[in-house]
Design a protein around this nucleic acid. Structure first.
Lengths: 207, 207
DNA sequence: GTCTATAGCCTGATAGAC
DNA sequence: GTCTATCAGGCTATAGAC
């Protein structure tokens, strides 16, 4: 709640720079191959200097995990706002999230796969991810209220099915044709059909 | 075509041992963190000795990729044989493949994700994977012939949709609850519903 | 907040003796 | 097919001077 000093601002900028470089390194060498020394080299400092900003390599992973989930959450929410409440908003949010994943492949791998077995994200870093889960839960409930889908769609199972569909689209695109943009991707392009499958699986009761 | 000598056999055993250790290391430290020195340490030899069996770290990845795809192909085909031709066989094969993935998580990541950006599998290593693709193409055609699904299911799009569904199930299970077995997994358990979605998307024409 | 220096490791890969 | 020795470099992390 205290006003940040000039030094705090400078420090924040440096941290952001470290995060940006770390993302670049992960993109080039693989998420699990992130090295502090390589980050220091590109930042133009000696490795020990990084320890003023992050106490360990895992702490940097945790920050990346946190930032990634925050970005994903923001993109999801921004996308959701562009469509009608309920199922359209949910689909729009998930598509926006998919687009973010294709633009931020290294972070997406860190968030949605498990490329670094010994990295366990902290509960704080997980929070923005849980917020999205809560959003989706409420949007499914809203979709049911509006008669867009069957009541069974407001369930843990439906959420799991949705996550399977979205993860499948993005995983296949990332693994097989990472350079194709979301709109033209041979897998991401099928998003409408995939979401149609979901709606057909939970058809609303007419009447 | 020549009969393998005793030395060839011994050599093959050593190679198999190296491959097994490499899989263990990838499982513990991440696929991208595979190191030849760690393999040598566990094998009880010095690192240079490994170069008699693999000319480079990437060559070892390539062998792992090849072995993995062979295993996956065999599991897929064995599973497919347990069910009626056409769609049932295809679903049974894909489920068997999913079970294999949960039992061989490191190999599955190497095959179906892209954890080592600088590793490019050779065409030979890709061959068993392409064989499965051919199998699936034929099984979808057979399913259409038998009236199990709509003619549109014999298409590249249907194959992509299927791959999205299967990859989604396995990816979510691997990333979120890798220790749950296929039958009890919170995501893999939903395989029947997911395949039902696929069938409903390509309903056969009655008549 | 930066640095040097250092500890204590590790890496992939090659040359050449045995 | 194993080894030692070596190259040429890498790594995370800490202590302590400036």
């Amino acid at each position: 709640m205290t006003k940040p000093t000039r030094r705090d601002l400078r420090r924040g900028q440096t941290i952001d720079e470290i995060v940006g470089i770390a993302i670049a390194v992960m993109t080039e060498d693989g998420v699990a191959a992130l090295s502090l020394s390589e980050v220091a080299r590109r930042l133009g400092v000696r490795p020990p200097s990084l320890y003023k900003y992050f106490p360990s390599r895992m702490a940097l992973f945790d920050r990346l995990f946190y930032d990634g989930h925050q970005q994903y959450r923001d993109e999801f929410r921004a996308g959701a706002k562009t469509a009608d409440p309920g199922l359209p908003a949910l689909v729009a949010g998930l598509e926006a999230g998919g687009r973010w994943a294709m633009r931020n492949q290294a972070l997406a791998q860190l968030l949605f796969w498990r490329p670094v077995p010994k990295f366990e994200p902290s509960i704080e870093s997980f929070a923005p991810g849980l917020a999205v889960v809560e959003d989706i839960k409420q949007m499914l409930a809203e979709a049911v209220d509006r008669g867009q889908v069957a009541p069974a769609a407001a369930s843990l199972e439906a959420m799991s099915l949705l996550s399977i569909l979205v993860t499948g689209i993005v995983s296949q695109q990332l693994a097989n044709a990472p350079d194709e943009p979301f709109e033209a991707g041979r897998f991401t392009r099928l998003a409408p059909q995939v979401f149609a499958m979901f709606r057909a699986h939970y058809p609303p009761v007419i009447g």
